[in-house]
Write a protein that binds this DNA or RNA. Structure first.
Lengths: 165, 165
DNA sequence: TTTTATTTTCAATAAATATTGAAAGTTTAA
DNA sequence: TTAAACTTTCAATATTTATTGAAAATAAAA
């Protein structure tokens, strides 16, 4: 099983784009590979097609399952695990939003709550408390928007898009 | 010039949060420091308060200027450069959105256009072309939303927020 | 000019992250 | 049971990214 030149390029491109999104290059490549494959792939397939080690293939495939972007699939009569990507872009987008919100936004909210509660309301901390309050208001709003997006469907998104413009 | 325990904590917290946002830790710390300082700071100040080297302080302060989050300020009768953060959370948010959109979304759009134009419309590339099309549609929409946000004010944002919910 | 203060650069080094590959673990079949 | 097929783990290693600090560059003052 071998990739065409264009498929190679898609996978490589996705890897390096993923990289400046703060996502592990191999994880992005494995995801790209599974996205353009019409059937689920085994660890061996991924190793061969991406020229990576068994450990790397296994760890990143499982990370993608954990992110909810890939399903582990069983083929009757075959002992191997196969991995297949969810193909619906809206499902993917919602899933990524959910993970990133949990990992990147919620910790900010918690940190700000903690900072605020511990900080004396004196002259020395005036600027800091202003910043904390502003950030808190803002972050909570952004968090709500993403939460809403996670729970909504494509149609809701189009309606909002229209209203915004 | 020395930070209180709480100010230290704010700066440290922002550094590590910045880190899992894919932002250089020191850059996030310098930004945090300038955000809670009521006056602009010199390189020397930043070095002392954050315990970092001159090169590091200088490079990250300038990176923040390049991101449009910090201004270089001159004090009459003083030869040193001072750095002061923009304090308005909406200005900050719009500026970050702008930079990240340019660096993270626009390259995706270009890459997809290029991939699409080069890829033969045959059986072998059927799945890939479907994914490219879906991603293109989606990415263009997201890009527009962010562009709109960059150009809008706080009130627009509140109105949209209401309509969304 | 020359000196002094300050900023910038960048090669060397350190720190953080990702990858390998072989050993240990697990599951199914003989 | 035991063996074979496969997956998982993780210490060692490689790669990437960030930081230092001193030398070079720049700008202001003497």
């Amino acid at each position: 099983m071998k990739l065409t030149e264009q498929q190679q390029k898609f996978v490589q491109t996705w890897g390096s784009l993923g990289n400046n999104w703060g996502i592990n290059k191999t994880m992005a490549q494995v995801h790209a590979l599974l996205l353009i494959s019409d059937k689920a792939l085994s660890t061996e397939d991924m190793m061969e097609m991406l020229q990576i080690s068994r450990g790397n293939a296994n760890m990143n495939a499982r990370a993608l399952v954990e992110w909810g972007l890939v399903n582990k699939e069983m083929v009757p009569g075959d002992r191997r695990d196969f991995y297949g990507a969810k193909k619906d872009i809206w499902v993917i987008a919602r899933q990524i939003t959910k993970m990133r919100r949990q990992r990147e936004i919620e910790p900010i909210i918690s940190a700000l709550v903690e900072l605020k509660s511990e900080t004396p309301n004196d002259q020395q901390h005036k600027e800091m408390l202003k910043r904390v309050d502003d950030m808190q208001d803002f972050t909570i709003k952004i968090n709500k928007i993403f939460e809403k997006f996670e729970k909504s469907d494509e149609n809701w998104f189009y309606k909002v898009l229209l209203k915004m413009m």
